[in-house]
């Protein structure tokens, strides 16, 4: 770097345009969020005719969101949290177990297994929704807690999606952990379970965070199978299913409570993302960069 040039010029040529691009992209990235905030505080419940600073603002939307007994928002939040946390944990642990084996154990059909789990997830679950409904229904005939309207079967269904892209990412990460470490441990007499728990898991924490986060947000987003399994009964819905009810149908869109609820749901996830950003960047690709 040549220090003879003035700082100003350096700023003009190297940084200014970066800031301009940054601000433009930031505007694009934040665009719906800004309008979501604006509509959330607009008491008229509009979105299409929304002004950036609403003419009539207040907390009416939040009040109506929390006072609606037909559409109990707090219950939806709880449902979403329980389901997404449990299912994301299940997905991460099942995926980690499988990935560990795929990374460390040389067994026949390993390659095929890897490809298969990726391909199988590509079968559209849309049509299977009815079949899942029937399966859960007949499970419920015998075991009430595994039936329709219960969260456990839904969590297990999401657990079934654990073997997929996430397993790939996990496996690539495990591949980067030098196998000399576990070879050494094995010579010391450590069992495969011990190696996994004491060596791999601590080293792979960042990737677990990433996978958990991606699974968590993915499950938070799911509404088709969720609505089919849990039903559209007020207290059994999740945020993704429930909030849509406010703007259901083309006739009576009530944007106010919808955006207020969406804003409340988004904020904690957003904060989580900001704090775990570092892991996201390193975790997602570190796997493939061992060379």
């Amino acid at each position: 770097m040549k220090f003879s040039r003035s700082k100003v010029k350096y700023w003009m040529t190297k940084l200014l345009w970066r800031h301009i691009v940054g601000i433009l992209v930031a505007a694009f990235a934040l665009f719906p969020l800004v309008w979501m905030i604006s509509a959330a505080f607009d008491v008229t419940g509009q979105l299409s005719t929304q002004k950036l600073i609403p003419t009539f603002s207040g907390f009416d939307n939040f009040q109506s969101l929390f006072s609606n007994t037909e559409k109990p928002y707090t219950t939806w939040v709880r449902n979403s949290l329980v389901i997404a946390t449990a299912a994301a944990l299940l997905q991460t642990s099942i995926g980690a177990l499988a990935a560990y084996s795929l990374s460390r154990h040389k067994f026949r059909g390993r390659r095929v297994t890897l490809t298969t789990i990726l391909i199988v997830q590509m079968f559209p679950q849309l049509l299977a929704a009815t079949t899942l409904f029937l399966i859960i229904n007949s499970l419920g005939q015998t075991f009430d807690f595994l039936g329709l309207g219960h969260q456990l079967p839904l969590i297990l269904i999401f657990g079934g999606a654990a073997l997929g892209v996430n397993t790939w990412i996990l496996k690539s990460f495990f591949d980067t952990i030098p196998s000399e470490i576990d070879e050494a441990a094995k010579i010391d007499g450590a069992s495969h379970a011990l190696i996994f728990m004491k060596i791999i898991v601590p080293l792979a924490t960042p990737i677990f965070v990433v996978i958990f986060l991606l699974s968590f947000i993915g499950i938070l987003n799911e509404y088709l199978i969720t609505s089919v399994i849990l039903g559209l009964d007020g207290p059994s819905m999740t945020i993704a299913v429930g909030l849509q009810q406010f703007i259901y149908g083309s006739y009576a869109k009530n944007w106010g409570p919808f955006t207020a609820g969406a804003l409340l749901a988004t904020t904690p996830v957003l904060i989580l993302f900001i704090f775990l950003q570092k892991y996201l960047i390193s975790g997602l690709v570190s796997g493939s960069t061992k060379g």
């Binding site: 409904f133 029937l134 229904n137 005939q141 088709l224 039903g231 559209l232 259901y248």
Partner: peptide
């Protein structure tokens, strides 16, 4: 008393004949 799900006929034509 349950709210119908939004998926077409909510699987009625499948569930009915299956006794569910």
């Amino acid at each position: 008393i349950l709210a119908k799900c939004g998926l077409g006929d909510c699987g009625l034509s499948k569930l009915g004949p299956a006794g569910a």
